[in-house]
Amino acid sequence: MPANKPLVSIIVPVYNAQRYLRHCVDSILGQSYRNLQILLIDDGATDASGRICDEYASQDARVTVIHKPNGGIASAQNAGLDVATGDCIAFCDNDDIMHSSNIEHLLMALQRTRSDMAKGRWNQIGVSELPSTIKSASAAQKMGALTLIDDPLNAYQSVFCKTLRILGGARTEARYFNEANWCRLYKRELWDGLRFKEGHFAQDIRMAGPLYARMKRVVDVNEVLYYWLQEPDSVTHSKRTPAFWHDNVIAAAENFEFTLKRGVVPYRNYFGLTASVRDELRGLAGNSHARDDDRSLVQADRLGMRRMLGKMTAPQRLVGWVLASIRRAENLAYDVLIHAKR
């Protein structure tokens, strides 16, 4: 990586995002770090999103637009990775906002610590908060404190309950990972030969284990650098079908086994696996028109979960159950306080 001004590629999958897309792209163009390759991947949008992308490309030479048939977010992210030429890679969702210091501060942290990935903090916002967020996101701010994490895969699997993160203090909070690719800055070589599995809802869960396993060191920047817009119609908040739940079960199981083989206890995937099977069972119980295929699939997932959990020791399963119980309670509060944002 060049020591002075490395090129940073920012990949933005775009699909039917005309309502918020300009806010997102404006926040990227407004980055204090200027040496950017901005890749807007029009994933077969049927609204004005593609035209908006082309407008930005005609106004700023740093913007490149790729128009492709709809293939889902994994396909769009892969299309961006295939053409990215930057020394570092970042992602941004098409309705979110990056703080103007996002790339500058993450890049400084990456270079100072010689880490494989730099990550920042984020806030969830509602649509009504967009005007104030846009203003605060453009304001200058000092770089936050840095914390090094030398075991990223273990941190990802073990630190995921908000309650325990609060009780553990700043060091524990810094070790918090999730599957999201935004508010991260990656060294380009991490993605060599690695691509998202297309045609699935939970492409980020499948990627988490293999990606974090490649990293020797991660640096956390204690600073809000990203704003995640909460929309009731987004896939994360609204897509609740047998296919969605099943995909989450399989993704958690794949990541569970990948992690366990590397000598790390997959506590996060214990929660993801059991929660997704529970959602499947509840969805089946509440669907009087469920097909026999759906019932067979749920039962197969339930048996597969039991076999997978049987690979853990009894003490590990107990810890997993405790952590999962805490996380489920937190999710109830999260649904009320965060998903209800307007």
Rank of each mutant, 00 (worst) to 15 (best):
P6Q: 02
L7R: 13
S9W: 03
S9F: 03
I10W: 10
V14E: 00
R22K: 15
L29A: 04
S49P: 03
E55W: 10
Y56L: 04
H67F: 00
I73W: 00
N78Y: 06
V83E: 01
D93S: 10
S101C: 14
L106R: 09
A109P: 07
T113M: 06
M117T: 13
V127N: 03
T133H: 01
S136R: 11
S138W: 06
L153K: 12
L153P: 10
C161W: 03
I166H: 14
I166S: 14
R171D: 15
T172C: 09
F177H: 15
N178F: 04
R184F: 10
A202D: 11
G209V: 06
R217A: 04
R217L: 07
N222Q: 14
A252L: 02
F256S: 00
T259I: 09
T259A: 01
L260T: 06
P266L: 01
Y267R: 04
T274F: 02
V277K: 10
R282C: 08
L284Q: 08
N287V: 01
R291E: 13
D293R: 08
D293I: 07
L309R: 07
P315H: 10
P315C: 11
L318I: 13
G320F: 03
G320H: 05
W321P: 01
S325E: 11
E330C: 06
R342I: 10
